[in-house]
Simulated scan of single mutants.
Amino acid sequence: MTVYLIAELKVTDEAWLPEYVTHVHRIAARHNGRYLSRSTNVETLEGVPRDVTGIALLEFPSRDDVMALIGDPEYRPYREARRRGSICHYRLIDDTDIAGSIPYLGKPTGI
């Protein structure tokens, strides 16, 4: 089942960024991930704006692929640098429809 990794972050120290943005997309691709967006152009249309510098949206064929990326030894130093230089929130969603009424989305389990 397709899943989407939503990474929201607020950069507190930019030192890690050049190496991260140069190399991590290649590591993600090795785990079947692809960036759909990696942007600092974040506009709040409703609600209280979140204190974020940027948001990245990645697509993976499965949760297992995401977990393989997160556990990849080559990714580890980039992950640790990101954690030291930002406040980040990683969220994972699948391609289901909670109402089950959109035909091109899957129906959730356990609801």
Rank of each mutant, 00 (worst) to 15 (best):
Y4G: 00
I6C: 04
I6R: 00
A7L: 13
L9N: 08
V11W: 08
T12R: 04
T12N: 08
E14W: 09
A15P: 10
W16R: 05
L17K: 10
E19L: 09
V21P: 01
T22F: 09
H23N: 09
V24M: 01
V24H: 00
H25V: 11
H25S: 09
R26L: 14
R26T: 13
A28S: 09
A28N: 04
R30D: 11
N32R: 12
N32Y: 01
Y35A: 07
L36T: 07
S37W: 09
S37T: 15
S37C: 15
R38A: 14
S39L: 08
S39P: 07
T40P: 04
V42R: 04
T44S: 15
L45R: 13
L45Q: 13
V48N: 11
V48H: 03
P49S: 15
R50H: 09
R50C: 01
D51N: 14
V52W: 02
G54N: 07
I55Q: 10
I55M: 13
I55R: 08
L57Q: 02
F60R: 05
P61F: 02
R63K: 11
D65F: 12
V66D: 04
A68T: 02
L69I: 00
G71P: 00
D72K: 12
E74I: 09
R76E: 14
R76D: 12
R76L: 12
Y78E: 05
Y78K: 05
R79E: 04
E80L: 15
A81H: 11
R82Q: 03
R83L: 11
R84N: 10
I87C: 04
C88F: 00
I93E: 09
I93P: 01
T96S: 14
T96H: 09
D97P: 09
A99W: 01
G100L: 05
G100F: 10
I102W: 09
L105A: 15
L105G: 04
K107I: 15
K107M: 12
K107Y: 03
I111L: 13
